[in-house]
């Protein structure tokens, strides 16, 4: 898909307005998983706004956002960065062959205490 179309699709799925961002960086200051991520919450907002989504689609950062919503909660401008991360992730995993989690991998990833909640959440987040 062309970048422009991809941007529009992402904006629709995100249902949030990146132009509200005043580039304060509070989202990335609050993010509990910042160091694991190649692209950070404020960059998702900015790069989607600028249509520079290709690097995001290829980044592992998509799968490292915890959707803890702290960036949404603390953003002074109600930009909702997590919605952009989610929208880019959906744009990626909705593509054919982009499932990140396969049932056969599960036994290795769990132990006897692993709650069902973790598995259903992970399947929701990593597969389509």
């Amino acid at each position: 898909m062309e970048q422009q179309n991809m941007r529009e699709e992402i904006l629709f799925t995100a249902n949030a307005d990146p132009k509200k961002c005043m580039k304060c960086g509070k989202c990335s200051g609050a993010c509990p998983n910042y160091d694991k991520m190649e692209y950070h919450p404020h960059q998702f907002v900015s790069m989607v706004q600028e249509g520079n989504v290709e690097p995001l689609l290829e980044s592992e950062s998509l799968y490292l956002c915890l959707t803890c919503m702290v960036c949404v909660e603390r953003c002074p401008r109600n930009v909702q960065p997590a919605r952009f991360i989610e929208a880019v992730r959906l744009a990626k995993i909705r593509q054919q062959g982009e499932n990140r989690l396969k049932p056969q991998d599960v036994p290795e990833l769990i132990d006897e205490d692993t709650p069902q909640q973790l598995l259903v959440s992970a399947f929701r987040k990593y597969t389509k």
């Binding site: 580039k23 960086g25 990335s28 200051g29 609050a30 993010c31 910042y34 950070h40 404020h42 960059q43």
Partner: peptide, 11 residues
Amino acid sequence: VQASDLLENRQ
């Protein structure tokens, strides 16, 4: 204190 440093792209 946990904060962003946007110019250096680090937390």
